[in-house]
Structures are given as structure tokens and as C-alpha cells.
Amino acid sequence: MSGPAPTYGGAVVTARDLPEALALRAQFPEAVVLAGGTDLMVMMEAGQLRPGRVLNLWGCAGLRTISEDGGHFGALATWTDVARHPAVHPALRECARTVGALQIQNRGTVGGNIVNASPAGDSLPLWLALDAVFEVASLRGARRIAAADFWVGYRRTALAPDELLTGVTVAPAGADAVLYRKVGTRLAQAISKVVVGARIRQVEGTVTEARIALGSVGPVPLRARRVEALLVERGLDPDAADAVVDDIAPIDDVRSTAVWRRQVAQRVLRRWLVEQRAFSARNARQ
């Protein structure tokens, strides 16, 4: 709650396309990057962030596209763009619809959520589960960073100071079972207490690959490696979910407690594994 915001006196530089954005990023590596503003404006309004310079990317329309097959996202694609795209994986579309509410989804971007690197970032576990690859670029060239290597510490990413995230690629999930589940105080506008993204691949009834990722349960979004290993070892055993309590490192904070988060993480996964086991058994009989 406040009156008119104190006037922000810092400079804003605006890029209209990627080459301009990379040149400005190289010139002003200390600038805070502005996409849809849904995180940045809140932090600035609260006085938590007073950047000397802002690099505004919103006008780079070329970075807003989603490929026809739904597998590649420009960093500036909004959550509404994701939710409306018919070929995007249903779990990602569901995730898109849980980001804030419509007003936020219309402005908040895929890249903003990833680079803001909040431990509670709605989409982050899902990118981990889908083995997403993040495309980053600078004047020095382009490179690709696996989602699993991108969040290196609390609100810290693998981006170099002169680099920008330009896009995200996800491999087709095919027939894999994919889960997205955000647990918050209510459906809209809630910051997650626990958020889960998971994917299991089975070949002829055998689990060949498991990706279980969780947010709001540690300083960075985490893979539940013990659960993943158990699923590959034992197949769709709901008891594998119990191991998640040792895979995650939640804390007590304003939204929830560590104990509750461990219980919820375990139950969300267990319930999904029970469903998937039943689904697999039905398919095997047919």
C-alpha cells in the first residue's frame, strides 16, 4: 500500500531486437533486465531494488515467439502465450495458468520467471522435469545451459554479466507421464508453498527415466535424485515418494513450515505414483 511511487531517477535503455539487446547488455552489464515487469516492478515499488540502470527488453518482439510444435519458447513469451498455444505440452499450459492471475500471465514472461530465479518460481521444477535447455547469448556468442545447471544458488543463475536468456527448448515428452502441481493458499495469486514438476518415461512397463523436481523446498529448485533412482530401480512404487523428504531442504518461512512442506511433497508424489501405477496396470491389461 502506498501513494504514487517515489520517482525512480535511474536511466532506462530500451532494446528493440536481439542484436541491440546484446550490445546494450555488453555495455551495461550492471543493468537490471526488465521484461514484463511483474517481479521487477514489485521489488522496485517495495524499495528492495534500486537499479542504477534498467535494460528494457519488452519491445524485442522477435523474442516472444513460440515454435509451431510448441517445443521452443522465446524468452519473452508471456504465460498467456504459453497457455493459449495448442501444441505446448498440457503440463506447461497448466503451469502457465497458475502464474499469478490473468493480469500477471498477460505480462509475466517465461524468461523472467527463469532468470528471476526465485526458489518458488512457478515454472522452474517443470523445466527441470522436461530436461529443458536454456539458450543464452552475448556479443561473445551463444551457448546452451541445461536447466539442471542453471540455478546455481539462491536467486543466482549461471548467466554471465554480459549474457541474456534468449529462449528455452524442451524435448517432446511423447507418451511420458508428466505432473505439474502447485500447492498454495489458493489457486490464483498465491506464491507456492510446494511446487512439483515430474516426468516418468516407461518402455514396455519398465521405468527408464524419472525426473522429479520441486520448488519452494530449498534455495534453488531441486531434483529429487533419491526418488528418481528408486523409480528406475523398482518401477512405479508409490513408496519411492517417501525418499523425497531427504531429497529436499525446506525451511520454515512466512508461507509454511519445513515439516508441512516435506509431508506435502511426499503426498503429492505418492498420490501421483498411485495414479500412474493404476493407469499403467490398466494399459497393460488392454
Binding site: 532506462v12 526488465l34 516492478m41 514489485v42 493480469q103 505480462r107
Partner: peptide, 16 residues
């Protein structure tokens, strides 16, 4: 409504 999409005007800097 900004360019056909509903937004929170408290989160949009006028430069955009």
C-alpha cells in the same frame, strides 16, 4: 486493457 490484454497498471512502467 493494454493492447487488448488486461494488465495491472501498477506493474507496467510507462516506458513500455
Amino acid at each position: 486493457i493494454l493492447d487488448g490484454e488486461v494488465v495491472c497498471s501498477c506493474l507496467v512502467p510507462v516506458v513500455q
